[in-house]
Design a protein around this nucleic acid. Structure first.
Lengths: 350, 350
DNA sequence: ATGCAGATTTGGAACGATCCAAATGTAACT
DNA sequence: AGTTACATTTGGATCGTTCCAAATCTGCAT
């Protein structure tokens, strides 16, 4: 008995059923590992499946079952290693749970975010993990995703809706505590004139970090000099350009708490250009602990956020939410860890 | 006339049709922008779509049409910035063409690659873009994906099948030319004792790069010292550990062509630990031009591969393949560009 | 024989869209 | 009025699966 010549049509349940002289329904039961089916027929079916090279059509199954086995992951910037590792973590945990990741990148544009969200939604993900673009607002996001899919926000808040009414879960870093730790560390090293450098004031993570900075300064009775609160885009380049702003007045700071590692690395460049040696003449800290931080010249004191683990955590939170759709919203704050390296030297004259 | 209270069921074509007193078929025509439908009814339908918050169910449509609007992207290592940027490029181009990216990470494990591929396949992607894990072999990959989906290989070859019989497209970097350029550059700077450092001999990209190195050396009548062909894993850490191997004999090399940037950065660390200043006492080059390369101490001479553009190119190639399924397989070699920075100094005594 | 319980198997109607051939409506021309 | 042409709409079958209630098959006690 020869099997049919390999046609180029996709092989379906019907083909298998026909090949075994069984009904579609029985074969379906085998596929789902039902205990109802006889050992022997199961074996027969499984042989046929292998023989014909059957591949399960999850889309059709999901259509009928009104379920979904995919989760959308929408990121503002995949090229940033922090998010790339996060994505790897999400995918790993989702795959382990039998889900598949639908990827979407927004490139920090709120309008592309809209487009990406609605395109992904058409593929019917069970849920959405979103790291919002900079000026994305809750109204639009909620309108795009509708009332059906659970949403997990990562890393940034979403403006425009009272936190009480938010119908999403959230996973954020402990920005405030992290910045406080970094500031306390610099104070302990003997610094008294400390700047907060980088980030945009309308970004939630930036204002949280700044709050941690202020908290530590005030606890130590140190002045928070307004002239040393420097804003800049969270990129190396802009940070390097804005370095001069620190040294405008008569007294200059001896250290800076930077918004993140990218900014800190940029500030290092700017310092070098002014003839100041970071880690010797000027101390600084970052945030994120990206790979480059350990390799900088000098290596950068920073806050480790374990992005891969955050990704796995985000996936877990989403899976829990799918399992219990009606529990109240969760706000999860992930701990961060101060990693002390050579960039946080004592002040020169100390 | 009040619309139904917002139920929690998903709204379908039928709901819209009922709401307009039209048939499903007509509404479907509207959705697909058919010119057949009357201006006025179209407007009526579109209003109703908005009103009820309809979201298109692409899975159902694809089932009926026997099409797909997703593409699987399977990567060996998303945490590597090179692949992260590549992924961002792929996603950008796919999204622009109306496709969605199904992500899968293998973590360099051939067995996970199998699992990831078969899981993704069940979601019926129109094609697969794969950067194979290190020891993945063609047999298994082809068995997993079956004869249906087009496959585009990125960056690495797939062992176990004669290239003639390969039923996939390929996008690779011009590894050989890149390494030749780097080597020629070092020779021009005055080096004569040059090592090739890093990578595994069973990796296709590594042997291509080594071939380019040998080509340049032989063209300049310089000896290819077997003791200076050092293998190591393509990571910073292992590269740093293996540094000593370069300095075992009586005469040491004055420069090294490194397998990639990660290896080069690791070698820099190893040199520093031995009291050698990279870029002054010893010259070296990398491959990839990752972000850290420009910021190293010293900045690293390397080969720029434009991973984001490669990603877009990969997506384009896949889309073309989908458009013309029966054209013969393409092998595309992407150019690389030598970026000269401070790490490739002349030899000390020159 | 008959009935009954447990173990297996099964037909047909879903899921939410698209396709196709046929139906309907409208206007214009003999 | 009858025919034709064109524009617009539609019912029902279909894609590949799952669900459900009902059918079939056993063996075994009555």
């Amino acid at each position: 008995m020869s099997s049919h010549p390999p046609t180029h049509r996709k092989v379906t349940l019907n083909d298998i059923a026909a090949g075994c002289a069984l009904s579609r329904a029985t074969v379906s039961l085998v596929l789902r590992g039902s205990p109802l089916v006889n050992r022997e027929t199961r074996a027969r079916v499984e042989r046929e499946l292998r023989l014909q090279g059957y591949v399960y059509n999850r889309a059709a199954a999901n259509l009928r079952r009104r379920t979904s086995t995919s989760i959308a992951l929408v990121l503002n910037d995949l090229a940033n290693p922090f998010f790339a590792e996060f994505a790897a973590g999400v995918d790993e945990a989702l795959a382990a749970a039998g889900y598949v990741t639908l990827l979407g990148c927004t490139g920090e544009s709120a309008s592309r975010e809209q487009a990406v969200l609605s395109s992904l939604l058409e593929h019917g993900p069970a849920g959405i993990i979103l790291s919002p673009a900079e000026h994305s607002n809750a109204q639009d996001v909620l309108a795009a995703i509708g009332p059906l899919s659970p949403l997990l926000l990562f890393n940034r808040e979403l403006g425009g809706v009272a936190p009480e009414k938010a119908r999403w879960d959230q996973l954020a870093l402990d920005n405030q505590r992290g910045a406080r730790l970094a500031t306390e560390h610099l104070i302990e090293r003997g610094h008294r004139r400390i700047a907060f450098f980088g980030g945009h004031h309308d970004s939630s993570s930036c204002s949280q970090r700044r709050a941690g900075f202020v908290e530590a300064m005030q606890a130590a009775d140190l002045p928070v000099e307004p002239a040393w609160q420097i804003e800049c885009a969270p990129t190396r380049l802009d940070a390097a350009h804005r370095t001069a702003a620190l040294f405008g007045g008569d007294a200059a700071p001896t250290a800076a708490v930077c918004y993140n590692d990218a900014v800190a690395l940029g500030l290092m460049l700017g310092l070098n250009q002014r003839g100041l040696r970071p880690g010797k003449d000027f101390a600084l800290t970052g945030f994120d602990d990206i790979a480059e931080a350990a390799l900088g010249m000098p290596p950068l004191t920073t806050l480790s956020t374990a992005p891969h683990e955050r990704g796995m955590q985000a996936a877990q939170l989403m899976l829990q939410r799918l399992h219990e759709p009606h529990t109240p919203n969760r706000q999860t704050i992930a701990p961060v860890k101060l990693v002390i390296r050579a960039s946080s030297c004592p002040p020169p004259a100390f």
